[in-house]
Nucleic acid binder design. Sequence first.
DNA 1: TTGTATGCGTTATCAA
DNA 2: TTGATAACGCATACAA
Lengths: 335, 335
Amino acid sequence: MRKPTIQDVARQAGVGVGTVSRVLNNHTAVKGLTRETVLRAIAELDYTPNPHARRIAGGKSYTISVLLPVLTTEFYARLLDGLETAFQEARYDVAIFPLLDRSRLERYLGSHTLAYQADGLVMATYNLTQMFHERRLRTQQPTVLVDAYADNVDCSFMDNVVGGQLAGEYAATFSGALYAVWVETELDQLFTTRVFEDRRAGFTQAVQDAGRCVQAEYTSSFDTLAARNTAAALLDAAQADPAGLPCTVFASADLLAGALLDEVRVRSLTPGQDVRIIGFDDQPWAASRGLTTLHQPVESMGYEAAQLLLSRLGGFKGPARARRFEPRLIIRDTA
Amino acid sequence: MRKPTIQDVARQAGVGVGTVSRVLNNHTAVKGLTRETVLRAIAELDYTPNPHARRIAGGKSYTISVLLPVLTTEFYARLLDGLETAFQEARYDVAIFPLLDRSRLERYLGSHTLAYQADGLVMATYNLTQMFHERRLRTQQPTVLVDAYADNVDCSFMDNVVGGQLAGEYAATFSGALYAVWVETELDQLFTTRVFEDRRAGFTQAVQDAGRCVQAEYTSSFDTLAARNTAAALLDAAQADPAGLPCTVFASADLLAGALLDEVRVRSLTPGQDVRIIGFDDQPWAASRGLTTLHQPVESMGYEAAQLLLSRLGGFKGPARARRFEPRLIIRDTA
DNA sequence: TTGTATGCGTTATCAA
DNA sequence: TTGATAACGCATACAA
């Protein structure tokens, strides 16, 4: 059976197509009663507007392309949630371009689909911007950065420096040795982010300000095996040092904190007592494991990024804006 | 400046719009000369057809939705490559729906976008099909499975049983003990696949057929730390056993093989001599590390899946077809 | 083999 | 506030 069109709805409601269209788009106040009638007709016919027709008539694609690396899925799932919620509210489609690797990025940039496919671009990785600039791809479309910061571009970012500071301030309240585990900066420049550097900077600053110093710092790649080995090395050192325990460890990502928690347990040490642990990210398992960590308002960051872009699409011409979000310390059992 | 339309091209080429359209779609032989003229005009104007107009005029979306889990990115990047190549040739767009988690699946199924957005569906995970059936979502659209098999649905799949057999046959040619490491079946039912069970079945069969038996089997989750621990346990056992070395190990995924290779090196054993290793997947690093492994024609599998779907879209009405692809043993240094 | 005309389902413009 | 109607850019049936 044929899909109902706006014509069918208009007929059913006994109004003109224009009116239906206006209801659909929340246009200039359609009179309450008429609006009701139209909405009822829409419901009765189970009508869904044809997006393609809308696109050609409107001369826009009503689509936003989101370029995002596929890495720590949890984070990006939440980010997408925020983005999609906002865009759906504005009747925009979201086309996701998962950057599985560099060759796929090339593919997207090469394909002309971006030209027609998108009214705007969301880029969820810092270096992508650089790439766009380098390659003179100063994309025609309005662009917004999420979870990244750059001048002259709208962006919605997480203040990882503050996150690190919160961790540092809290860690400094505990007596005993202070340790920190950092994430090795990735080699792949495409997906490089500054988040870990930022967390480190904030933490170091806060610890210094508190007149404390870090006993030892460790670095691990973002990988369970490496994290576990690093945890073991850290605990070896702490246990060997007469003044090493109790100690407080800032693990700059929950993945690292989890590995440390495992290793602490294996050694029959008590988390939160012998070894206090502060993570970062508030992964889904963090609550059940009692991990003290920093929670990031990722959805809000995504939602706001979308709003920034939508305002550009709505004609906003002002200078680039930056929206800052702050992680929040969640105190649980481990510290 | 306005984007050129098909009208502009027709004017520039001195032909009718119909002719331009025909050239665009490789329709009924347009005379060679006319074709040339049109193509030149297209090039001169740097014309790109407006996909939205095409969609509404054609009454189709010319878009294929691809639902795929985001797991072993390497594999899916290659799979997408095969799919996109085929669909691009047929002037179909590909909309990717990365299933980061279950809630996102719900989102896709719930949103009406699939209805208009796709003429066909590619599903890259076995259980998705089940879900579609269970939820009576017997999708209106023609559907094809990739890297999965089911009755009554077109599918293009990798024969992991044969892959396991090849590994088993080759392993059986070596004297000494035989070991195997399997991947723990994932708990998340959504993304469950049968690939590891299949590899195991094939391997076991081949080893039995060769009159050999497996000394010991190990299971590991798909994770570097777990893999490394498993490798250590295996080598502990082998080294403790007077007849344990030299031995041959089938690691049913390169991730496991890599961890084993690391552990072998750490113990100053010689891969390919003390411990022969056969992996599975042929990851990008496999060649440089000399890993003997099974290579899967993933791109071809994707390409063929696309062809199956395209033939349905072209009106093919026959019964469900299944295209089978076989892994190929790549012998390098480790075995 | 090619050109012309019509239709696709919206949005936007202009009257009413 | 609403209805009628002209775009939007392409595919396709039909005519030439």
